[in-house]
Write a protein that binds this DNA or RNA. Structure first.
Lengths: 170, 170
DNA sequence: GCTATGAGTCTCATGACGAGACTTATCGGG
DNA sequence: CCCGATAAGTCTCGTCATGAGACTCATAGC
């Protein structure tokens, strides 16, 4: 946060959180990590983001302990840490807000509890089980409805059918 | 979102939401609105933000239906709409994440249910009543603990003692 | 060994932001 | 009524952030 004025004078943990996840693209990167995306090139293709910015954002998330960087030969995998996973409620809440208060020419993504198949409620609870399932126990699918322009990158293709959250996308 | 590359190609409501609230300072502005801040000059002083950026952000939030602009003589009040209020769970979740996973030299803010005085749990529920109270039914206070540098702007002063959410700050 | 691939690094032009000065309209007191 | 103070902006210019695209380096597989 190098611009002339940062959030340091804000004595509040929302500001602390935004210092980590508030930069352009960061929450969308994390969204993809929740879907199981692990590779730089997949993020690049799915987000249509510049290489320099993606590198910076990933480095910052690793430095903040939100993602872990795991070299695998020439490839690198970026995986959510426990702290990273704990961001799910925030991402879910924002997505839900967007669905309910904004419009888009694309169907929403629906998250269901893998064990019982019930769709989550607005607060991320399974109404059948009465619990808030961990993100690893969710399946995401596209709701029925008119589709906008279809993306053809590997991530979009993998997510066009129901997909277990956090499961690596090949 | 005028930079060369925006979120339009992201067919997802997280992206739609971030188009509205994802810009620098926006969520902190909304945080203050939840505290009851309504005046440009109070936001300016509390956020230490440039006048031009604050104007732009407020205009964008009004255009998006998150805030309502109410002229009152020479003053203007910016008030959360219902859609704006619906952002509380997102802001609360992010703040909680910040508290639990990051460090700061300031105490966290604690939110309690005004009716029964119980502090909310991590999901924003009142454990005593078993419900998720509306933000208007919460009282915010500073937790005990060492204070960083104290701000002296009117908002910080008003929030140094327990304060009902959404209540106008004079 | 060679080619392809993955993850970056780098440059330059455009846009975002901050700092501070200035403007306009309203309010309240003398 | 006039004047000074105040609130909410508007504007300028220098610094930082981002995007687009080219290039580099290391690894993998044939």
């Amino acid at each position: 946060m190098a611009l002339g004025n940062g959030y340091e004078q804000q004595g509040c943990f929302l500001a602390r959180a935004l210092e980590v996840v508030g930069e352009r693209w960061t929450l969308l990167i994390l969204r993809d990590c929740f879907y199981g995306v692990r590779h730089f090139s997949d993020l690049l293709a799915h987000l249509d983001i510049s290489r320099g910015v993606l590198t910076e954002r990933l480095d910052a998330l690793v430095a903040a302990g939100v993602l872990e960087r795991r070299p695998k030969g020439r490839a690198v995998e970026y995986v959510l840490t426990d702290a990273g996973r704990a961001l799910w409620p925030s991402i879910y809440a924002l997505s839900k807000w967007g669905e309910q208060h904004l419009s888009g020419n694309h169907p929403p993504r629906v998250f269901s509890h893998a064990d019982c198949g019930t769709d989550l409620d607005d607060a991320g609870r399974c109404p059948t089980c009465g619990t808030v399932p961990d993100v690893a126990e969710l399946v995401v699918r596209l709701a029925d409805g008119p589709h906008g322009s279809r993306r053809s990158d590997p991530v979009a293709v993998a997510l066009s059918t129901p997909h277990r959250m956090l499961t690596p996308i090949p």
